[in-house]
Computed example of a mutant assay.
Amino acid sequence: MYDGTTTWENIYEILPGFSIFISIFDLKCEFRLNDNFFFAKPVLDPAAILEEYINKNCGDDNVVIEFSGGLDSTALLYTACMVKKKSQIKALTWHHPDISAKEDINASQYVCQKLGIEHVKYSIKTEELFILDSFDHTITAPNLSLMFYMTRKKSHQICSRGRNDYSFINGHGGDHLFFDPPHYSSLINAYVDNGAFFAVKKLYQYSIFTGIPILQVLKKLIIHKRRSKEQNHYDTFYRHCSEKNSLDYGSKELIIAIIQAIFENQRSCPAKVYTPFTCKNMINFSLSRPTYESFNKTQKRIHFKKDIYFSYGKDTIIRNSKGHITGIYQKYFQQNAEKIKYIIEHDTILNTLNIDKKNTTP
């Protein structure tokens, strides 16, 4: 039985689809997998899933798309334009004047101008990262969003001007669900499902797309095959998924990527922040499509792109490169290397965060 143990004292990791049962007699926790979490057949395409999600969760609120100009946030902005008036929509782009790629700003600004959406740019300060103030809700578990809590809070205040009728929508998770960039492990599934000839064809496409020589890809696959025999705490979940026949559940790596995205999207911000790419319907759509069919020699995430083009028109602006602000966090890590090393070695992340402990429930 999976025990949910983490490196944080008295904090347990509940995997997606699990429920926690606590016995008062022996003070033990059990995590039992719910059979109905991932196994409903998808009935909607990605664009319809996003539209349904925004309508259901945001209601009559104004919406702010946390907008990098990449594929997922662009799809969200187009979707918002379908279900909301343009006067109800803002696009928020985080950037750093010395670190962020100009492509992110230019791409996001161009899309906003084309759609007629107000574009808000917020300049991130590296000293804002890993800073928390007091707030009146419980952190369910330490996760990635805590890293930019203050950045998100300040930029959201600028967009909403202190009003509470704003919902914020973030596109994180799409690259996990649709294996962006394509992962070499999908070639194993191509061989199992369609035989050697098809697998060789996909191997060639993968090599051309990634620029990795075929022999190096084969070497990666051999090493991957050896490592796949190692056990980890996702195995119970993966084996359960593999026993279901209603969908093609893809590779173990895809399932683990989805699990990681769900945990990274846990809510740790007082504002109304929604992450539709890790909703149940989108996950089921991802799992219903073989990962090896998502790329060819020149394109990736083919299923998702085709649907967005079909739903919003062939002139929909989609960039091939990812929009991200990774460089800002890397800069922080470089500036605070000793502090981060201490956190890792002494397992004291909660004590290292700048928290008002009198008013905060960790």
Rank of each mutant, 00 (worst) to 15 (best):
L254I: 13
L254K: 08
N281Y: 03
P270A: 02
K272S: 09
K272F: 04
E253L: 14
C241S: 12
F277C: 02
P276L: 04
K252A: 07
N281F: 04
K280V: 04
C241Q: 10
E264V: 06
K252R: 15
S268F: 05
R267Y: 07
R267S: 14
R267C: 11
L254P: 06
C279F: 02
F263S: 09
I258Q: 05
P276R: 01
L247D: 04
A261N: 03
M282S: 05
F277M: 05
F263I: 13
K280A: 12
D248A: 13
D248I: 08
K252D: 07
E253D: 15
M282C: 00
N245A: 15
D248W: 09
D248N: 15
A271I: 11
E243A: 14
C241I: 12
I258P: 01
I255S: 10
A271C: 10
I256W: 01
I256T: 06
S246I: 13
V273N: 01
Y274P: 02
L254Y: 07
F263K: 12
N245V: 15
I262T: 05
P270G: 03
K280N: 10
L247Q: 03
I258T: 03
I256R: 10
Y249A: 03
L247E: 00
E264A: 15
I262R: 00
M282Y: 02
P276I: 00
C241N: 10
K280G: 04
T275F: 09
S251Y: 04
I258K: 01
K244G: 00
K280I: 12
I262W: 04
Q260E: 11
E243V: 11
N265M: 09
A271S: 13
K272C: 03
C269Q: 11
P276C: 08
